[in-house]
Design a protein around this nucleic acid. Structure first.
Lengths: 116, 116
DNA sequence: CTATTATACATAAGACACTAAGGTATTAGA
DNA sequence: TCTAATACCTTAGTGTCTTATGTATAATAG
């Protein structure tokens, strides 16, 4: 069976949201579904983390939001990446990749001399 | 020039410490040097994060500590991985790698259908 | 027809690990 | 002799997360 979803490392949610919105406008609930789905249920976005994060990003000017009523008659707040959000996405993507590289170096490195 | 060191993602320091101590006993200051060095100065461990982390890990029984005086006459608290610490290292290594995989899937995935 | 699940939003309380900034003390080198 | 490097520690503040709770509607199952 699949292991339980991992808790998010603090600081990685923003880039996940930005990336998801990079595909086009969407609303909170759908964003969280998408992240969960495309990570094979490994990453789970709690609502208590998601909605505040969306507000934060909007306040920073990285997202725009608008209430929309879907074809089914359901209300949802649809978020769209701003130009600044798109730039921020690129920045955070490369920061993440740099971080992973650094971690990989540390976790796979073999000591050349003494650690002390 | 090299970009400024990145701040740590909360939750990644423990595995870095455990990994470093996997090479053999060491003390706080040296651990922080080692991490900085082998990541090419990309990861910087603040002392205000390091020392509390070492205490945490010791309280969890993952590390043992003992004051030692080096050949130079300098005092240092030398930490050693316990058996539990070694097991925890393996656990956290695979958790990290699982996390990176999940993030990679999310950050490189292309939507099959609509995001909404 | 009714009860439950899924959709969709929001917030509050609390935990927790980090940054920034300060402090002590010794040794080595300029 | 003064500074940089070594080596430890702590506190205050911040920010992001988890957990729990609350509201409301639509779709589905029994």
């Amino acid at each position: 069976m699949t292991p339980p979803p991992m808790t998010l490392l603090k600081g990685t949610l923003d880039v996940l949201i930005l990336k998801t919105l990079g595909w086009g406008p969407s609303h909170g609930y759908a964003i969280s579904r998408w992240i969960q789905q495309c990570t094979g249920e490994e990453l789970q976005v709690e609502e208590g983390a998601l909605y505040p994060a969306l507000r934060r990003l909007e306040e920073k000017g990285l997202l725009d939001s608008a209430w929309k009523t879907s074809a089914t008659g359901r209300e949802a707040k649809v978020y769209t990446l701003t130009a600044a959000g798109r730039r921020q996405l690129q920045t955070e993507l490369s920061a993440w990749s740099r971080y992973v590289s650094a971690m990989t170096r540390a976790l796979e490195a073999r000591p050349t001399g003494a650690i002390a």
